[in-house]
């Protein structure tokens, strides 16, 4: 099945490059580690056979678009496709300069969860394939099936992949919502069940681990400022020392900046070397934006960016 999709993708991309419809392609190739994938950016037709589509293509490739010139073809999952629309809304890229190859996915597999389930290192797991709604994992000489919830990345739970817009081509079929919308909200509800002071203590503990590597910022397609506020020195908004207070302020302000742009792709959480549950923040921001403005990031390329628009009579109940 997967092979067939890959063949379809490779043939399509080869044709696009030959015809000159696109100058280069941004896609995924197999990484050096087992079950890993890494971005492939090429204009060479010979490289096309390295393209892959599988449940491990976690990167949000739209982060590269601002830096690439010419007409760029890009392989996009549902969340990535919305990030691309969001970048068009913000005038960071032009619609005519991208050729979006939609690759609907049923969610990406979180290898940390697989390691926990099997009790093995990812190198020792033999195979992971989708069989209907279950993931079949072969390890230690036998195959076991696990539900989507057990193996998928948290950000993929409750993802609604149906609003695939602005795709110039679609490879594969659009999958249904993984496990229902509520599944993704579980972690927010858990957090809200805590008292406010407890929540603050929780985040204090989490952010005391942050080493300020700024990986979350670099990997985020919505974080496109040429100069980030954390690097400003006059005035200096946050101390250069990685104290938890400043780590927290950095992340909170980053969330404000990506409000209405963040498509909850989960890359910031995946990249975090300190395993800070940033997905709980992005998911909450998505919910706030939906609740206050009935707005979903990256669904309409012609709509103004959320924070650049207004309604004369809104939100007055929140003002004193």
């Amino acid at each position: 099945m997967t092979r067939e999709i890959e063949k379809k993708l490779r043939d399509a991309v080869r044709e696009l490059l030959e015809k000159g419809t696109i100058d280069r392609i941004v896609g995924y190739e197999a990484g050096s580690l087992k079950f890993s994938t890494t971005p492939l950016i090429t204009s060479n037709k010979a490289d096309v056979d390295r393209l892959v589509i599988n449940p491990f293509t976690h990167s949000n490739l739209s982060v590269f678009l601002r830096d690439l010139c010419g007409k760029v073809g890009i392989v996009a999952k549902g969340c990535d496709a919305r990030s691309i629309i969001s970048l068009i809304q913000d005038r960071q890229i032009a619609r005519k300069d991208v050729f979006v190859i939609g690759a609907p996915c049923g969610g990406v597999i979180d290898l940390a969860k697989v390691e926990k389930l099997t009790g093995l290192d990812r190198d020792e797991v033999d195979d992971i394939v989708w069989q209907g709604e279950k993931a079949a994992i072969t390890f230690a000489g036998s195959t076991q099936k696990f539900s989507a919830k057990e193996v998928l990345a948290d950000s993929c739970l409750g993802c609604d992949p149906s609003d695939f817009k602005e795709c110039d081509m679609l490879i594969g079929e659009i999958e249904p919502i993984v496990g229902g919308k509520e599944l993704g909200q579980d972690r927010i509800r858990e957090m809200e069940a805590m008292a406010p002071a407890q929540r603050w203590e929780f985040w204090k503990k989490e952010f005391s681990r942050c080493i300020r590597c700024y990986g979350c910022r670099q990997v985020c397609p919505a974080c496109f400022c040429d100069r980030c506020f954390v690097e400003e020195t006059e005035p200096r908004w946050i101390s250069p020392l990685p104290k938890w207070q400043d780590n927290l302020i950095f992340q909170v302000v980053r969330m404000m900046h990506v409000a209405g742009r963040c498509t909850n792709c989960g890359e910031c959480e995946r990249i975090c070397p300190a395993n800070i549950p940033l997905g709980s923040l992005t998911k909450k921001m998505e919910e706030i934006v939906d609740e206050l403005f009935q707005y979903r990031a990256g669904t309409d390329k012609d709509a103004p960016p959320l924070m650049a628009a207004y309604q004369p009579d809104e939100l007055e109940d929140l003002m004193r």
């Binding site: 407890q198 603050w200 203590e201 929780f202 927290l248 909170v252 706030i288 207004y310 929140l318 003002m319």
Partner: peptide, 19 residues
């Protein structure tokens, strides 16, 4: 109007953080 949008999400979000 822009302040209102921006600070509304700030208020809501900081409440979630525990402020």
């Amino acid at each position: 109007y822009r302040t209102r949008r921006r600070l509304s999400i700030t208020m809501k979000f900081m409440e979630y953080m525990g402020i």
